[in-house]
Amino acid sequence: MESVEGEASLRGQAEIWKHMFAFIDSLALKCAIELRIPDIIHSHGGPITSSQIASSIDSPSSPEISYIERIMRLLGHKNIFAAQHPSDGGEPLYGLTHSSRWLVTGSDSNQLGPVFLVENHPYMVNSWHFLSQCVKEGGSAIEKAFGGVYIDLASKDQQFNKIFNEGMACNAKFLTREILAGYKHGFDSLKSLVDVAGGIGGLISEIVKSYPHIKGINFDLPHVITTAPVYDGVTHVSGDMFHTIPNADALLLKWVLHNWSDEACVKILKNCRKAIPEKTGKVIVIDVVLQPDGQGLFDDAGYACDLVMMVNTAGGKERTELEWKKLLEEGGFPRYQIIKIPALQSIIEAYPE
């Protein structure tokens, strides 16, 4: 019995060590993305050594090969990259895996690198050090750390605004494919569609491209719209969704409502209700639907995202279906259906009656 208890205790100790250093995995991978290592391996067309990686890094001086070797050893051990160890003791070779292919720039619509850089930006990461203070006092960790939520910081910091918008645009890019595949007929009858808080317009532009009969409106705050490129069939409109939303047959809210408290979401939804037709209008919410049992492929990420919202927003959170139902009803949408897609988010189609 003692040996069993001793083994369990040892495993418990190892588990705590693992969690103690879990941040290193994220920041080592951030380093690899910033150095464009996934792109370098991809451009070579196959596994390469740390020396070959170093020779391809854009740097004013010679990169530290020993640092690259140690970073790649860790990321290879974590199966982010595929590590091959030659039997003759030569340099290990590192190739892409199904995970690191999501970090290759512009390879296709599978791209999470810019999103990763947003979530591991100092604004986001440093805020977590204030979490215990928030538990005791309430409030938002990012506000305690930097004096504002991430939307405020983006409006004041042009570099972060660029990183944030690029991240959201890439998130929209790969998610768009799943939306268009999983919601094929949901856009058929629409003549107009507003992407509420649509960023720089990546999602609405792809929808209009696939459904050219739709008049697309990309709606966001002025500092976001000023960076938005021109798209055929899309009109950029600046404004504030807490005041008024442009009228359309349907409104799209992708990863928007999870940023806000229940009270704020109800206000947004009521404004959405005013902007669509009484009988035929609808709201298309694309957001996480937490599962109580937590056994799904993306459930770990969903629960983690819930804490990201707690730390980096003023009242934002991920929600279960029951929480979504209550929110939609209070916002004027008593009828809804959830459409599963192969992504972290689901589609929630909500109707005013």
Rank of each mutant, 00 (worst) to 15 (best):
M1Y: 14
E2A: 15
E5V: 12
G6W: 07
A14G: 04
I16D: 11
I16N: 10
W17S: 13
K18N: 11
H19Q: 14
M20P: 09
A22V: 15
A22G: 13
E34C: 07
H42F: 08
G45C: 01
S51K: 13
Q52G: 03
S61C: 11
S62P: 09
I65P: 10
I65V: 15
Y67N: 14
I68W: 04
G76D: 09
H77M: 10
I80Y: 15
I80W: 13
Q84P: 13
H85W: 13
S87Q: 14
D88Y: 10
G89N: 06
E91F: 08
Y94P: 07
Y94T: 07
W102C: 11
V104H: 01
S107D: 05
D108G: 09
S109G: 04
S109T: 02
S109N: 06
N110Y: 01
G113R: 09
V115C: 11
L117E: 04
H121I: 07
Y123E: 15
V125Y: 10
W128I: 06
W128K: 01
F130H: 11
G139W: 03
A141R: 00
E143S: 07
G148F: 11
G148H: 12
G148L: 10
A154H: 07
A154V: 08
D157H: 09
Q158R: 12
F160N: 08
F160Q: 09
F160T: 09
N161V: 05
G167C: 00
G167S: 05
A181R: 05
G182R: 06
S192H: 07
V194W: 03
G201I: 01
L203H: 10
V208A: 06
Y211K: 03
P212M: 05
G216K: 03
I217Q: 09
F219S: 05
D220V: 08
P222H: 00
D232V: 08
T235L: 11
D240V: 05
N247Q: 12
A248G: 06
L251Q: 05
V256R: 04
L257F: 08
L257V: 06
L257P: 00
H258T: 14
N259E: 15
E263P: 02
A264Q: 15
V266H: 01
I276V: 06
K279D: 15
V283K: 02
I286D: 00
D300S: 15
G302S: 01
Y303T: 08
A304C: 01
V311T: 12
A314K: 14
A314P: 03
E318N: 08
T320N: 03
T320P: 05
T320G: 02
E321W: 03
W324V: 04
G332A: 06
F333S: 11
F333T: 11
Q337G: 14
I338Q: 05
I339G: 02
Q345Y: 07
E349D: 11
